[in-house]
């Protein structure tokens, strides 16, 4: 193999064909609220950890929908389970239980 001094740029494109549907369905069985998010961002706006670390329930749900579960888990690593997001969620999502469920299914 030859080294030309340059190589492929990584693609940022999400391939939805590769998203793990089975795991997501088992998460939805455990916490059906995961399906209810309408991406308003109230959770991230009020997140205690989010002001300092990349933490967001909204983004975590989106990452799971896009099949990027490692990203989702990372986005919740700094959560302190304070419950502020549960208070502000207009769809009444049980975010604390959702966060724990995500760790249970996707966590290492």
């Amino acid at each position: 193999m030859i080294d030309f001094g340059f190589s492929f740029s990584p693609s940022s494109r999400i391939n939805l064909d590769k998203a793990d549907k089975e795991k997501f369905l088992s998460l939805a069985a455990l916490e059906p609220d995961v399906l209810k998010c309408m991406a308003c961002g109230s959770c991230s706006a009020s997140c205690t950890a989010g002001a300092f670390e990349d933490t967001s329930v909204r983004k975590a749900i989106l990452s799971l929908q896009n099949g990027l579960s490692d990203d989702a888990v990372k986005l919740l690593n700094h959560c302190m389970l304070c419950g502020k997001c549960t208070m502000v969620c207009p769809r009444g999502i049980n975010t604390r239980h959702l966060i724990l469920s995500i760790q249970k299914i996707y966590g290492k």
């Binding site: 340059f6 190589s7 492929f8 740029s9």
Partner: peptide, 14 residues
Amino acid sequence: IKGNRGYSLSNTHK
């Protein structure tokens, strides 16, 4: 620019 060639290559590869 050599540093950008990977981007050109990636498009062709795609």
